[in-house]
Each structure stands twice: as C-alpha cells, then as structure tokens.
Computed example of a mutant assay.
Amino acid sequence: MSSPVAQPTQPQGYTVPVWLTAAARAALLTLRAEPWQRLQPLWLDPNNSNPENGPPPALVPVEAAAPLADGWVLAMAHCDPGPEVLDLTRGLALWVLLRWRQGPGDWLELRAGEGVGVLQASGEPCLSAYARQLLECNLRPLLPEGRCLELVVVIPQGRRLAERTSNAAFGVVDGLALIGTQAEVQRSAAPDQLGLALAELRERCGAEDFGGALVLVIGANGLDLAQQLGVPPQLLLKAGNWLGPLLVAAAEAGVQRLLLFGYQGKLIKLAGGIFHTHHHLADGRAEVLTALAALAGLGGAALQALHDAPTVEEALAQLDRLDGPRAEQLRQHIAAAVERRSLAYLARYGQEQMAVGAVLFDRSRRICAAGPAGLEQLTAMGMRP
C-alpha cells in the first residue's frame, strides 16, 4: 500500500489495538516474503485512510517479525501508552501469529491465544469495533486477491495482568481485552484528564435544564452499565481516577444530589479515604475490606481469608459461599462507608450541602449494594438494586 511520508510516533502513546495492528502488518509483509520495517506506517483513523485526504499515516514501532514452521509468521510489539501515563500496558509484549487461511469465509479469522480476554458468554475474543476497523484498513489493502488470513493474538502476561482490571465485571475472562475506541490513550490518571472532566461538569451544571442531580460513573465500564440500566443520559458524567476534585467541583457547581456508580473493587477505595483511585498511586483495598469486615463482626480464619484473597471480587465471592447473609451485609457496609467518607471529604473543603449516594455492581453486572442515599437516589430514578 503506497502512502505519503508518515508521521513520527506520537508522544502521547497508543492503545492496544494500534500495537496489535502494527505487529500484524509487519507479520503480513513477512508472510508476503517482503522486507518489513521497524516503524510500521499505520492509518489510525479507519474513516480516513485515503492518501489524498487528511493526515499521513503514523509510524508505530514493531520489535520483530520472522517466519516459523507450517506457514506461520510471528511478530511482536511492545505497548507504550506514552510519557507520564500510568497504565498497566506499559512495556507489555504483544505477539501475533499469522498465516494464510484456506477455504471460504471472511478475509480475517482472529483467535484469542494465551492471555487475550474472551467473552465469557460466547468464547469469542473481546475485540472493540475500532480494533477491527483498524486491522481492516491497514491489512486488507495488502492482501492478494482471493487470499484470507488467520490471526492468533498472544499476550504472555495478559492473564496475570487481567486480575488487576475490572474486565471480569463485564464478562471478559482469561486475559486482557483488545479494546480501545481511539488510537491515543485516554490519560485517566493524568491532570489533563481531570481538566476535561471538570470542563464537562461545568457544562452540565450550566445547562438550562440542569435539575441539580448528577450520576458520576467510574470508568467506561460503569458508563456502559449505567446506560443499559436506563439512567437518563443527561445525568451521566464519566469520571477518571480524580474523584476527590470532581466531588468538590460538583458541590461548588451547584449539584445537590450526586450518585457514585462503580465497580465494587474500585469504589471500595473511597471507603478507605482514597480519592485518587488509580492503582499505581494508591491501593489498600484488602486493608479497607478487612477493616470493614472486622467492624461488621467477622473474625478469625474467615477474616484472614478475606484479607488474603487476590481481589475484592474473589474475597466477597468466598464469603458468599461461606455465609451469604454476612457477605450481603458487608457489601452494604462498603456502600455506606463510601457515602460517609465522601461527605467527610467534602466537609474538609467546606462543601457540606451536597447529598452523596453510592451504588456498587459486581462482575456479573448486577447492582450488589447501595448506601442509604444511593438507594434513595436510585428509587427517585425509578430503579431498584
């Protein structure tokens, strides 16, 4: 595919689909017995991959590409989310195995190898629409007429790293999802992401139809679930990890009722007074969970098992199997603690007029707990946990 002069690698870094596509393109060139370049020219906007219009392709680095036995080609890239971005994909090795596919079917058959997340309901690779479009606009023009491809993606560390994400809360198991809705990484832990959220908050609160209520959803997964549950779109505001400043700004902007809606393994940090929730900066989830469980009367081996579980989700699942009513009570304690600590945080900044509710969901996409204020706000929106 001929192209104009490509751009150097962007300093802000890229999402996983970009690194996947770069490695796959290098593999395809090798499969065609052509030389591959370390810097692969990629169209990053699937809707604008015409050399006559728009910006030229960007150059994205690939580590290696080489032929293997049985017609396979192996290529590898290392993910880089960019400078000053706290993201678990930094330095992550991503491998692709590519070969010609025989027989009828789509031009590309993509399979999940080790460490790549699959949808629990179907076993299909968890791949965003943007990732599919990126592969198509960069690979398909290089395909000889009538040829099809078989692509296997492997992320050697993916299964282990997935335990540090909320993928399982949305039915994605066995590894990291190949998701991303754009080329550049959204810097949820960076100050500029806070600025964007604050700007959107001010716009919402300044609208003529603003009624004083807001639902602060934690991350893209929380936004997706809230929309599916029927929360009115005009109430939804997606938050990154800067929850403390957003709480204060919401109160200052005139929000009267704020609902925190998020995954239980994330929101539990607020119950411990941690108001910047990125895992690189603060964790303490096991300690917060254990303290709340002890205050709720749990002790002995059950309390130790709770502390030693690999995730909050697994800890509560273990307690569910041991003592379902106690697990339900603990979830309610967590939600109530999130509300109390949020109000205390606001009071430190002289903002005590805003009501704060908390609603938690689990990995089965089920609302599993709501604090007193959260339950009241859910009921006002016509929903029940």
Score class of each variant (00 low, 15 high):
Leu235His: 14
Leu236Val: 04
Leu236Asp: 04
Leu236Ile: 05
Leu237Phe: 12
Leu237Asn: 10
Leu237Pro: 01
Lys238Ala: 09
Lys238Asp: 00
Lys238Met: 07
Ala239Pro: 05
Ala239Lys: 04
Gly240His: 04
Gly240Val: 10
Gly240Ala: 12
Asn241Lys: 01
Asn241Met: 06
Trp242Glu: 11
Leu243Glu: 03
Leu243Arg: 12
Leu243Pro: 08
Gly244Gln: 06
Gly244Tyr: 14
Pro245Met: 08
Pro245Asp: 06
Pro245Trp: 02
Pro245Ala: 12
Pro245Gln: 06
Pro245Phe: 05
Pro245His: 09
Leu246Met: 12
Leu246Asp: 02
Leu247Gln: 02
Leu247Phe: 01
Val248Lys: 08
Val248Ile: 15
Ala249Glu: 14
Ala249Leu: 04
Ala249Ser: 09
Ala250Ile: 11
Ala250Phe: 09
Ala250Met: 02
Ala251Pro: 00
Ala251Trp: 06
Glu252Tyr: 13
Glu252His: 15
Glu252Ala: 15
Ala253Ser: 13
Ala253Cys: 13
Ala253Gln: 12
Gly254Pro: 06
Val255Tyr: 01
Val255Asn: 04
Val255Phe: 03
Arg257Asn: 05
Arg257Gly: 02
Arg257Val: 00
Arg257His: 12
Arg257Asp: 13
Arg257Phe: 02
Leu258Asp: 13
Leu258Gly: 05
Leu258Met: 09
Leu258Trp: 10
Leu259Tyr: 07
Leu259Met: 15
Leu259Cys: 10
Leu259Pro: 12
Leu260Glu: 09
Leu260Ala: 00
Leu260Cys: 01
Phe261Gly: 08
Phe261Ile: 11
Gly262His: 00
Gly262Phe: 00
Tyr263Arg: 03
Tyr263Cys: 07
Gln264Leu: 14
Gln264Arg: 15
Gln264Phe: 11
Gly265His: 00
Gly265Asn: 02
Gly265Leu: 01
Lys266Asp: 05
Lys266Pro: 06
Lys266Ile: 13
Lys266Phe: 10
Leu267Ile: 11
Leu267Gln: 01
Ile268Gln: 06
Ile268Phe: 11
Ile268Asp: 02
Ile268Tyr: 05
Ile268Met: 04
Ile268Pro: 00
Lys269Ala: 10
Lys269Val: 07
Ala271Ile: 08
Ala271Phe: 05
Ala271Trp: 13
Ala271Val: 08
Gly272Met: 09
Gly272Phe: 08
Gly273Ser: 08
Gly273Thr: 01
Gly273Asn: 08
Gly273Ala: 02
Phe275Glu: 00
Phe275Met: 09
Phe275Lys: 01
His276Gly: 14
His276Trp: 14
His276Glu: 13
His276Phe: 14
His276Asn: 15
Thr277Ile: 15
Thr277Met: 09
His279Met: 07
His280Arg: 14
His280Cys: 10
His280Glu: 06
His280Gln: 15
Leu281Ala: 13
Leu281Gly: 04
Leu281Trp: 13
Leu281His: 15
Leu281Ser: 12
Ala282Thr: 06
Ala282Trp: 01
Ala282Ile: 07
Ala282Lys: 07
Asp283Thr: 11
Gly284Thr: 04
Gly284Cys: 04
Arg285Ser: 08
Arg285Pro: 00
Glu287Gln: 15
Glu287Met: 15
Glu287Ala: 15
Val288Met: 14
Val288Glu: 06
Val288Ser: 14
Val288Lys: 04
Val288Leu: 09
Leu289Ala: 07
Leu289Trp: 13
Leu289Pro: 11
Leu289Asn: 10
